[in-house]
Design a protein around this nucleic acid. Structure first.
Lengths: 182, 182
DNA sequence: ATTGATTTGTTGAATAGTCAACAAATTGCG
DNA sequence: CGCAATTTGTTGACTATTCAACAAATCAAT
């Protein structure tokens, strides 16, 4: 786990940060590899050492965040919705620039769908349509419904510049999920 | 000038920043090479690639700032005292952490004297003891007197957390020098 | 379409950084 | 003091990054 060469970690970190920054400034298609290299203070060739092109680079960035969130779910599996949501929103806060540009930028609706897929996947275990208040519902309907709700809340939060503390929005969305998924 | 290998520039930058940060947190003697490497996110061996030990490292940092200030004098040689001082105080501001820890820390009175030497050296050209209001004075006395005054003002400025904008203290010290060195 | 300019990937040689291991020096504490 | 632990400085083998140069692809405008 910790056997990644320090140079690799530093280069990739710089490159990914550069992309995030640049994406908050201009359209992804207008970003050139040289732009990224300049911003990351890295030779242009170094980028090709790790990524085949800028699309691959963006993909890997998305993939990484999705995986991190999935991992957070693992470690938060025994928490309440409120606590678990808080872990997520803390992560969002820590990576503000990435998520806000990803959810704002026109160029990356792909991210939104990857994000929704993850949420649905993770909530599958939480939904029970055999009994309780959701007994008799179609599972996919429930998942799509509340998955979209969560994504929508997150989008709203970012687009409005995080008007609530992570703690608060986590509690409120958590309470809404509690009420509906029991 | 711009032919320094990017890796060297980045490593040295990280190392120097690490030292500055650490010095603002603890005594220089308590800082270990490993501390610096950790903070700079650099292998310990890399430090020895550029510096023989931590004293050499600190020396080179001081040397570099002194040289930068000297260079600023060159490019500001045609300015008034006020303008010239402003250039200096801007530089101080930009490197706040370094100068404030250097002038505060007990461990580095060496820097203060290097700094004073530079000021005296640079003001040599400005002082005229053959005529005018300083006619008949001993040149060394004048230089030591006003050099110390400038160092003292800078020290005060840092130790009190830069209570005035750089522009203001530059103008005021500039006016005092004008009045005395004509 | 035909230019000319920019961007893209790729290459090879040179160099800097990493890592692990080592002995010597220094520190700190009972 | 004397011993253990830490820190130091150095080594060698390995790898990532740099840089300059290149041809191919893409772009922009006439």
């Amino acid at each position: 786990m910790s056997k990644v060469d320090r140079r690799i970690a530093k280069s990739q970190e710089a490159i990914k940060n550069a992309v995030t920054e640049l994406m908050s400034e201009k359209n992804f298609d207008d970003i050139t590899i040289q732009d990224i290299a300049d911003r990351a203070n890295v030779n242009r060739g170094t980028i090709y050492l790790h990524y085949t092109d800028k699309y691959d680079l963006l993909d890997k960035m998305i993939e990484e965040h999705i995986n991190n969130l999935r991992e957070l779910c693992r470690s938060a599996s025994e928490m309440t919705f409120q606590e678990g949501n808080y872990v997520w929103f803390e992560y969002f806060e820590r990576h503000y620039l990435f998520f806000s540009t990803m959810l704002a930028s026109k160029g990356a609706p792909y991210f939104r769908s990857r994000f929704l897929d993850l949420i649905i996947e993770e909530y599958k275990a939480e939904v029970d349509v055999t009994k309780g208040k959701n007994g008799g519902f179609n599972e996919d309907v429930i998942l799509q419904f509340f998955g979209s709700a969560i994504v929508g809340a997150v989008e709203w939060w970012f687009k409005n510049g995080m008007p609530l503390p992570a703690r608060v929005i986590a509690e409120q969305t958590g309470a809404l999920l509690d009420r509906n998924l029991e």
